[in-house]
């Protein structure tokens, strides 16, 4: 059985469109003048104005490696971040800390630590899974490069970005 669509009965004013058209014009010109007089400003002029001061505490930027106040590199190459990383952006080559090193008792360190920032999805699972508080997502968001190789952050770059983090648990203390 055919279904009869009930059409709304339009008034004359609605039929000739013009009142609606004029109302619309009123709305748009209101917006126009609001922007023209600078009363409203939604757009941030990116390179000149930046998000940095607006970034929330929980912002997840580029993952980095940190050292602590004792100058120890926190990472012990447990490879849990490599394991958890959903896009498999992390590559670690573990190595053994040499006999004469101050932190010999830690035994293990990353010989190579690479994060492919083309792959990274900034999910923060690496930070969450890290048992050594070594990897943190900092507030750097403008990660750019001209080549793919440049976009792979090696250990040096990761420590540059990460810097020193204080107030972390000092697990490898004298008693350890």
């Amino acid at each position: 059985m055919a279904y009869k669509v009930v059409r709304t009965k339009l008034t004359f004013a609605e039929k000739i469109y013009l009142p609606a058209v004029l109302a619309g014009l009123g709305i748009t010109i209101k917006h126009f003048f609001r922007v023209l007089t600078g009363k409203k400003k939604e757009t941030m002029q990116y390179p000149e104005e930046r998000w940095d001061s607006h970034l929330p505490e929980h912002y997840r930027g580029a993952p980095t490696l940190v050292k602590d106040e004792h100058g120890k590199e926190r990472c012990v190459a447990c490879q849990l971040c490599e394991f958890i990383c959903p896009p498999r952006a992390i590559t670690i080559k573990p190595g053994e800390i040499p006999e004469d090193d101050r932190w010999r008792k830690v035994e293990k360190f990353p010989e190579e630590f690479e994060i492919d920032m083309i792959r990274c999805i900034y999910c923060g699972l690496c930070e969450e899974v890290c048992p050594e508080q070594a990897i943190f997502l900092r507030k750097d968001y403008a990660i750019t490069g001209l080549t793919r190789a440049e976009m792979v952050h090696d250990k040096k770059r990761l420590y540059e970005l990460g810097g020193v983090m204080t107030g972390l648990v000092f697990k490898w203390n004298e008693k350890k």
């Binding site: 917006h31 126009f32 922007v35 409203k40 939604e42 757009t43 002029q45």
Partner: peptide, 10 residues
């Protein structure tokens, strides 16, 4: 420019 301003853009 005008369309941008009407749409609250730049």
């Amino acid at each position: 420019r005008v369309s941008a301003m009407i749409q609250d853009r730049v």
